[in-house]
């Protein structure tokens, strides 16, 4: 059976990729197929990769404080491209208020620093929309 596929990307200009890299490897350990696309991704890059790789989940890591802008943009493009069966999750430095707003906008989950890999993995397994 095909594995759940997750795209991990860092949008914007922030180069702090420790979290994204550790997450990519740890999700592999949890049995997922992770497509790692690295730093300095535009929303267009991310959506294109998500489509071509036919992923089930898009995970964005943002530590630059620019999360509102980047999530909004990715959500817009997801809608435009009909990726409504793809989960959008995120991690990084995101204050509570913003987290609430992002969830309202349609982001499925925001994980703060210190979230365990197991928790993220469980969330994905329980919420992935596609029927495998």
């Amino acid at each position: 059976m095909r594995k759940i596929r997750i795209l991990i990307a860092k949008p914007g200009l922030d180069g702090h990729d420790r979290g994204a890299k550790v997450l990519a490897r740890s999700l592999m350990d949890e049995g997922f197929e992770v497509i790692y696309t690295g730093i300095h991704q535009t929303a267009e890059d991310i959506i294109r990769s998500a489509i071509e790789e036919d992923v089930d989940v898009i995970g964005l890591s943002i530590l630059s404080g620019a999360h509102m802008y980047h999530f909004r943009r990715v959500l817009e493009l997801m809608k435009e491209n009909g990726l409504d069966d793809v989960l959008l999750i995120g991690g990084g430095i995101v204050p509570e208020d913003d987290k609430k707003k992002l969830i309202e906008m349609g982001v499925n989950a925001i994980f703060n620093p210190g979230t365990s890999i197991k928790e993220i993995s469980e969330f994905i397994k329980n919420n992935v929309r596609r029927i495998k």
Binding site: K3, A24, R25, D29, E30, G31, V34, I35, Y36
Partner: peptide
């Protein structure tokens, strides 16, 4: 071989 998962990073 342990988890069945993978990190696919060529397109980067």
């Amino acid at each position: 071989p342990f988890s069945g998962g993978a990190v696919l990073g060529d397109r980067i």
